[in-house]
């Protein structure tokens, strides 16, 4: 009880005297101090409530070490990432070309857009029973669900990107005689690319949310399954919370990785402050 209070006081001191640190150090220290305060409050709440089931930060840390040392978690991480990468890549391969065509061609847009908009609001979670019916318990169902959850953001984002190409750029292209594949390669695709990358980012985020839910319900491996399994096998909430933290960290890493796409010279203009 004393220790967490000291942690809170220490972090509060960092917060108050933040100006005295060099800017680079301060940018690291501020979020860390908030994280420390949250952990300390968590620890105090566990102590005060006298709960026997909910883990303290220390319990969670011990659980994390157990997961890593038992090697169990690596298999589940690989299982989840495997489904997400396949589903996401397939959705990219189908969604970007489809979005480009539907966005560019008005007739295709008129025909397909209502269907796409109608299917889009159906949560991928709602597809789980059908996914299991079609693909059984296993990777197939997971990949299918990730495909669905990435496909709509990517397709709709790409469509919107193409339809947003500015009139001046379209006219420039016409003025300099661009048509067919050249128009596509030199104007349509590069103009849409920044927004396409943003839609990929959104899609990957959604995919990572959905895979956990899918694995909890209808799969026998993966991080979602690990959470369910830890609870069912003797209410190991320390492992539940530890796995949640792992899911969070991997989510951040995935986002950092896909954001690297935003750094190319050809797309940086799309993210500049206007």
């Amino acid at each position: 009880m004393i220790l967490p209070i000291l942690w809170i006081l220490g972090s509060a001191a960092v917060f108050i005297f933040a100006d005295r640190f060099p800017e680079r150090v301060r940018d690291q220290l501020l979020p860390i101090s908030v994280a420390v305060i949250l952990c300390a409050l968590w620890s105090i709440a566990v102590t005060l409530s006298g709960t026997a089931t909910f883990p303290s930060p220390t319990d969670t840390w011990v659980g994390m070490v157990e997961l890593i040392e038992s090697n169990r978690i690596w298999g589940d991480i690989v299982a989840s990432l495997h489904r997400v990468s396949w589903g996401f890549c397939l959705a990219t391969l189908v969604g970007i070309p489809l979005g480009l065509v539907v966005g560019w061609n008005t007739r295709t847009f008129t025909a397909l857009n209502p269907i796409i908009q109608g299917l889009r609001p159906i949560s991928p979670i709602a597809w789980i029973p059908i996914a299991i019916l079609w693909f059984g318990i296993g990777d197939g169902a997971g990949i299918f669900l990730i495909f669905l959850s990435s496909f709509f953001p990517i397709t709709v984002g790409t469509m919107a990107a193409v339809r947003n190409i500015s009139l001046v750029h379209q006219r420039s292209a016409m003025n300099f005689g661009l048509h067919g594949m050249q128009l596509f390669r030199r104007v349509v695709l590069p103009a849409a690319l920044p927004q396409i990358i943003t839609s990929l980012r959104i899609a990957l985020g959604v995919a990572w949310l959905v895979i956990v839910a899918a694995e909890m319900v209808g799969m026998d491996s993966g991080l979602g399954y690990l959470i369910n399994d830890a609870r069912n096998a003797g209410s190991r909430y320390d492992l539940v919370v530890a796995t949640m933290l792992v899911i969070g960290v991997i989510g951040i890493i995935l986002d950092l990785l896909i954001r690297q796409l935003e750094r190319f010279d050809e797309v940086r203009w799309g993210y500049a402050r206007r």
Partner: peptide, 10 residues
């Protein structure tokens, strides 16, 4: 053009 018609990606 009035607004910038040059391509920002090139």
């Amino acid at each position: 053009f009035q607004e910038y018609g040059i391509f920002p990606w090139a």
